[in-house]
Amino acid sequence: MASQGTKRSYEQMETDGERQNATEIRASVGKMIGGIGRFYIQMCTELKLSDYEGRLIQNSLTIERMVLSAFDERRNKYLEEHPSAGKDPKKTGGPIYRRVNGKWMRELILYDKEEIRRIWRQANNGDDATAGLTHMMIWHSNLNDATYQRTRALVRTGMDPRMCSLMQGSTLPRRSGAAGAAVKGVGTMVMELVRMIKRGINDRNFWRGENGRKTRIAYERMCNILKGKFQTAAQKAMMDQVRESRNPGNAEFEDLTFLARSALILRGSVAHKSCLPACVYGPAVASGYDFEREGYSLVGIDPFRLLQNSQVYSLIRPNENPAHKSQLVWMACHSAAFEDLRVLSFIKGTKVLPRGKLSTRGVQIASNENMETMESSTLELRSRYWAIRTRSGGNTNQQRASAGQISIQPTFSVQRNLPFDRTTIMAAFNGNTEGRTSDMRTEIIRMMESARPEDVSFQGRGVFELSDEKAASPIVPSFDMSNEGSYFFGDNAEEYDN
């Protein structure tokens, strides 16, 4: 783990906690998980779902989305002020799938948001429990990260689609708070800032007046979040320049895209947490497990152990491969979309394939898809080993990566060399080191050039047997250095459309 220093740990961010010791953190995270579980059980009762239907990941996603929508204050306010045809701002819903006479049927349900809020609060001892809501947002974000390569979004903001390893959390809503900021990748933060800068260039009043003052505060806050992700002084200094700019424009845009590229080699610290679907927490609570009393951590053995003992089902389209669908969801559960496939294969105990080789589309089923041909199958979400999630980018030494994705962002704290394609990355730096950030740029390029592919990161860190909950005997895996390590390699994943 990167030293926490003055930073709060993510469990504290996750639970809005002030400084807590490890036991208190485990208890408050457990409380959050228990609340999600209780809410899910109650919703299944309301909807009269069978046990099997309640364990269907598509039903879980609909129920999670309903509660997130019920608590989305800004959108609710907007919907009330701008009524649109056929949208009731006070209601929320989605597809629920039921097994009827041996076939899967889709039923569109509609609930009062007020009623959903009441059920959620009741499951969370009367609190709004925003930490639990954020947790579900991060699960949705991790699922998107594993399912889609955001080529269009990258290109629109002047970045290269091969930089997708920097895009963790790119679909997280803005209201996801400190826990959300911690899991956002460098590219995601750059993209958010670039969008602001572009608006400022096109709209003279963007930075002016009372609204402009708020915009400015948001801009500086985002700059500080991004600065905190960088691990070298030169990158941090460049972020200070971007933040202090009187009138952010093209120079800042250039600096930010430069920094994003540099992060492929001088990786930023991005938190990883295993956020599971509500249909995993519900049955665990129903079986009598007391998360608050037992304590829970999002970055240790607990999620692995929970998945070892969970039964989750998914709808499967006619030509999809259930094992591939399982891999997709497994990666999402562990926030591992940008991790090295060699490491993932070792931990999972079966070969993890790149996205383009998977015969599976996303987990969600569109409303126009034919239910007649839908089957369902068990998702295999178990693992051979477990490993500690990392909050750091690993040290800054790398190795060759593949054509589709030119770097990785480690999820697990496991000893290995970190793949990246130096030639491709360095070719993108057209040696432009003039301007006010020239000395920093020169320094950053120097550090990137001296990074050695064969150097090892996370020295001495290994994986653990599932029986080793105290992480007492690390097993340090050895990897084939020459092997392909990137998930979005030469990829044809669908595009994420909101």
Rank of each mutant, 00 (worst) to 15 (best):
V155E: 03
E294G: 08
P283V: 10
H135S: 13
D112M: 08
D128T: 14
S335H: 13
G485A: 09
E320F: 05
G158V: 08
R355D: 04
Q311P: 00
P89C: 09
R75F: 08
G5N: 14
T92Y: 04
R156G: 06
H324P: 09
T215L: 01
G362K: 07
V270G: 04
F258D: 08
E454W: 07
A22I: 13
L307D: 02
Q364S: 07
R246G: 06
T6S: 07
Q415W: 03
S335E: 01
D468G: 11
A85G: 15
G86S: 11
S28F: 09
M239G: 04
Y10I: 11
R74P: 01
Q20M: 05
M43N: 02
M481H: 03
F230A: 02
F253P: 00
Q399S: 14
A337G: 11
N59H: 09
A234H: 04
G158L: 07
I119T: 15
K348Q: 11
M331P: 04
K91P: 01
M374H: 14
F346S: 08
T92L: 02
D468R: 02
V463Q: 07
E53Y: 03
S478V: 02
Y52H: 04
S376A: 13
M448K: 14
L47H: 09
A131W: 09
Y385H: 14
Q235V: 02
K227C: 03
L306W: 12
N125S: 13
R461V: 00
S287A: 03
H272E: 01
K214E: 13
M238K: 09
I445H: 04
M447D: 15
G177K: 05
A278F: 13
E380H: 01
L143M: 13
W139R: 09
D16L: 00
A472Q: 12
A336G: 15
Y78T: 06
A123V: 14
F338G: 01
H140T: 06
L328N: 01
L315P: 04
E18L: 05
N59G: 02
F420H: 15
I96K: 10
A234E: 08
A182Y: 01
E210F: 11
Q149S: 07
S486A: 09
Y52C: 15
T396W: 08
S402N: 10
R118I: 01
M426P: 01
R162I: 02
F258R: 01
I425L: 07
D112H: 12
A181H: 11
P161L: 07
Q364C: 14
I365S: 14
T396I: 00
R293F: 08
N101L: 07
G249L: 04
V194A: 15
G17R: 15
R8N: 02
A337Q: 06
K184Y: 08
Q327L: 14
G169F: 04
T378L: 00
G462Q: 02
S402A: 07
G349H: 10
K470A: 07
L381T: 15
R317N: 03
F206I: 13
G54C: 10
A428K: 10
A70I: 03
Q364I: 13
L133P: 05
M374S: 03
R261M: 10
N492W: 04
V363Q: 02
G249F: 01
L226A: 03
Q327R: 08
L276N: 04
A284G: 10
N370S: 13
I388P: 02
F304M: 04
F253M: 06
R75M: 10
K470V: 06
G93D: 04
E434L: 04
D290W: 04
K325H: 11
I138G: 04
L79Q: 13
R361L: 05
M374W: 04
I316N: 09
H135W: 01
T15Y: 01
M167P: 06
M238I: 09
Q168V: 05
P477S: 07
A153Y: 03
D491I: 04
I25M: 10
S245L: 03
R305T: 15
D468K: 06
M189F: 09
S50N: 05
N76W: 05
L49V: 15
R75K: 12
R174E: 09
N430T: 06
